[in-house]
């Protein structure tokens, strides 16, 4: 088997360590005996969605996000839309999550048009949400952890959230939701990098990709004691804190 990961805007949305997700996906695929190619694509490049098995996009700075927003609309929109609607597996973090929505208002008040593939929008908030975050995910039946760093407040209408916030702020700090999950698309504010502490999402992306491409149910079991310790360190840190504060 061979899985192609498309790392889109690797040179623009690349400031929060999110590239680690691509490294981890490749690592786990190889451990499962699956060959993996990473395709780096950026502005002006064609998105060959038929050849893509996992699409990944990370978070960026406002300066670069404007460039990306323009390029998506000009060069990638219809293929990304087909990919997502057709159940293509994808992970979109922070800035790219915002850009899948209809609009995004940057920290300085500039309005950036998003792809509008998802019926969601992001407003500008006064205070930047910076810190560890722990959520409870119904979909994965587990806790997910990460680090959030965003001033945007994202409202996801009727989509299912990725999880409910236990500690931290999540999508907007109001409705208790974090991220969203739609078909095989996962959007989230979790940096960390995300997959370094959430193997549930890694398994989901890989098994979705394999099922779609090869029509095989593939159970990804990740033996990762160190990774679970890294995850539980954050969960314990905040469960202790919330017990103390009570």
């Amino acid at each position: 088997m061979n899985i192609n990961i498309y790392y889109m805007y690797y040179d623009l949305l690349n400031v929060y360590g999110d590239r680690g997700n691509v490294l981890i996906l490749k690592n786990v695929l190889n451990q499962c005996g699956i060959n993996c190619d990473i395709k780096y694509i950026t502005i002006n490049d064609y998105f060959d969605y038929k050849n893509c098995d996992i699409l990944f996009m990370g978070g960026g700075q406002d300066y670069e996000q404007i460039t990306v927003g323009e390029d998506i609309i000009k060069n990638k929109l219809s293929n990304m839309q087909k990919y997502i609607e057709d159940g293509g597996a994808g992970l979109y973090i922070c800035g790219s999550y915002q850009l899948l929505g209809k609009k995004y208002v940057a920290a300085d008040g500039r309005k950036i048009n998003g792809a509008g593939i998802l019926d969601i929008y992001t407003e500008k908030g006064d205070k930047r949400y910076i810190g560890d975050i722990v959520i409870q995910s119904e979909f994965f039946n587990s806790k997910l952890v990460g680090f959030e760093n965003h001033s945007g407040r994202t409202y996801i209408n009727n989509y299912s959230p990725l999880g409910k916030v236990i500690y931290g702020n999540g999508n907007n700090g109001n409705d208790g939701s974090e991220g969203l999950i739609y078909k095989n698309t996962i959007c989230t504010y979790l940096h960390g990098c995300c997959l370094s502490k959430n193997p549930e999402i890694t398994s989901f992306l890989i098994s979705s990709a394999v099922l779609k491409k090869y029509n095989v149910q593939f159970d990804v079991s990740i033996e990762a004691p160190l990774l679970m310790k890294a995850k539980n360190y954050i969960i314990d840190r905040y469960s202790k804190q919330s017990v103390e504060s009570k």
């Binding site: 690349n14 400031v15 929060y16 360590g17 999110d18 590239r19 680690g20 490294l23 910076i130 810190g131 560890d132 680090f147 760093n149 940096h191 960390g192 990098c193 370094s196």
Partner: peptide, 9 residues
């Protein structure tokens, strides 16, 4: 730095 994500960069 409270965020250690940067080790992945």
């Amino acid at each position: 730095g409270r965020d250690i994500s940067w080790i992945w960069d």
